[in-house]
Design a protein around this nucleic acid. Structure first.
Length: 466
RNA sequence: UCCCCAGUAGCUCAGUUGGUUAGAGCGGUGGACUGUUAAUCCAUGUGUCGUUGGUUCGAAUCCAACCUGGGGAGCCA
């Protein structure tokens, strides 16, 4: 007798009349007084649960099987048969039901087999993976993650694990979390009365990384095609449906590349992973189309089959100035685009993801490559309808004199950029890369509105339970 | 961090223009019925009405502060 996962049985991988054991958690139980009970069992291997038909003849039928409630963990041994009822291809004619664990008090078990709000499920982050929706989100998340790695692998990129702890506070992407082993009740001080970080674990101030970009650039400038995929931390007090304090980011970096090269790379990558999801997770996507967004599948298909719209910032400004829409914030060349402007461009003007390029240099980071016009930098954002920015990237300034000039203009501490400047001093090459917010990608694909529901245990300001 | 909204049963919500015993559906439990599918039908229990303080003869209801959650903004991915 062998074990099988639910997906194997439902997909017909187990021969009819073969006896197998499936293990998982009860979703619902329905009794027929004619002498059988129906148990729907899920194990996470696919969207659907398997139906086991349990006859009253089993020795533990009345004292155990009929007492099973949602959430109980069981192993059910039975014969695989074509289902007599509708709703499933195969089912299990049970010969044995073993109960691993009961639900202590069915009346207060938080995951009842009915619709719960996403906010409610978030309060039970340890139990919500047992629900349809969180299970589906996590399978899609996994498939996206695998597809990202596969895409870059097939394209000849190396996955570089950049450090999570950094002693550089100049990564230029926002507030950082401090990493310290100092006794907070007895902090060592210098003669000047400042915190003496030489006493700290690393002998200097340390933080959690806000981006692997600066580090991965050094690997791009030697291994040519690289990417990072790992956790990222921002100590920003952002309370929105699209920000997390801890999130995962994909950051490819490509040597000998221009802005258009990585714009093309971003488009190819998104199409590749969307196609993978449509092929690998049709069950979960069908659920999202039914319950979250009717267009969940069709819009991915449309993206896969159409070219992205590429647009210069300057042209976008003209479109915004000349459209009928009334904006709260006025549009003028040189201003950073507001959410309402990005939404108009992606949702109304194009109705699909859009790549905006060549932003004014004064609103962008120091490391972005200056264009010949002297006014703009080779930066790009990919804006997705409903989410906003899911990718931000740029060509990197590879000319040392131009980079130094930018560092000075922005009053940044030049001495802190030693290794970054070295890359420009020794065999510099043009290179470019971008950052993809992985949870924003998952949110976009699934249609789930709040980013806190597409990561297992969300961390956000005033929120780090579990 | 700023603006707006909400917090009533295990869940989803109604209600209370300040006044005795607080309402429904679902879930749970008991029963009926049925190869059932979030089954159906009957019966049944459930509440510091977010927290603290104030106004009042009386507060779940009015006021204030706080907490938590949601929507929007900023910061960004």
């Amino acid at each position: 007798m062998s074990y099988a996962s639910v997906v194997d049985v439902l997909a017909g991988k187990i021969a009819v009349d073969e006896t197998v054991t499936v293990r998982g958690w009860v979703r619902t139980r329905r009794d027929s007084k004619a002498g059988i009970s129906f148990i729907n069992l899920h194990d996470g291997s696919c969207f659907d649960a398997i139906q086991a038909v349990v006859p009253a003849e089993l020795p533990n039928y009345s004292n155990e099987v009929q007492k099973l409630t949602t959430g109980c963990s069981v192993a059910i041994t039975g014969v695989v048969v074509p289902s007599q009822g509708k709703g499933q291809s195969f089912e299990l004619q049970a010969t044995k039901v073993h109960v691993y664990g009961w639900v202590e008090d069915p009346d207060t078990y938080p995951m009842s087999p009915k619709r719960h709000s996403m906010e409610y499920l978030r309060e039970y982050a340890h139990l919500r993976p047992r629900t349809n929706i969180t299970g589906a989100v996590m399978r899609v998340r996994n498939a996206l993650s695998q597809a990202v790695h596969r895409f870059f692998h097939e394209q000849g990129y190396l996955w570089v694990s950049t450090p999570i702890i950094t002693t550089s506070d100049c990564e230029g992407a926002g507030e950082m979390f401090r990493v310290s082993t100092l006794d907070m009740l007895n902090i060592p001080k210098t003669d000047k009365g400042e915190v003496d970080f030489s006493e700290d674990f690393f002998g200097k101030e340390a933080f959690l990384t806000v981006s692997g970009q600066l580090n991965v650039e050094s690997y791009a400038c030697s291994l040519s095609k690289v990417y990072t995929f790992g956790p990222t931390f921002r100590a920003e007090n952002s309370n929105t449906s699209r920000h997390l304090s801890e999130f995962w980011m994909v950051e490819p970096e490509l040597a000998f590349a221009t802005l258009d090269d990585i714009a093309g790379l971003a488009e190819a990558m998104l199409k590749y992973v969307f196609k993978a999801i449509l092929e690998e997770r049709p069950d979960d996507m069908a659920f999202f189309a039914e319950r979250i967004n009717p267009d969940a599948i069709s819009r991915l298909e449309a993206i896969v089959n159409n070219d992205f719209v590429h647009m210069d910032y300057t042209d976008a400004i003209e479109i915004l100035k000349n459209c009928d829409k009334k904006f709260e914030y006025p549009v003028e060349w040189g201003v950073d685009l507001q959410s309402e402007h990005e939404r108009y461009l992606a949702e109304e003007h194009v109705g699909a993801p859009i790549i905006l390029k060549n932003y004014p240099r004064d609103i962008k980071a120091f490391y972005m490559r200056q264009n010949e016009d002297g006014k703009t930098v080779a930066a790009m954002d990919v804006l997705a309808p409903g989410i906003g920015e899911i990718i931000g990237g740029s060509a990197r300034e590879e000319r040392l004199d131009v980079l130094d000039q930018r560092i000075e203009e922005m009053n940044l501490p030049k001495e802190e950029y030693g290794f970054y400047r070295d890359l420009r001093r020794y065999g510099t090459v043009p290179h470019a890369g971008f950052g993809l917010g992985f949870e924003r990608l998952v949110a976009y694909v699934t249609g789930v509105q709040n980013i806190r529901d597409v990561i297992p245990f969300p961390r956000a300001p005033k929120s780090a339970e579990f």
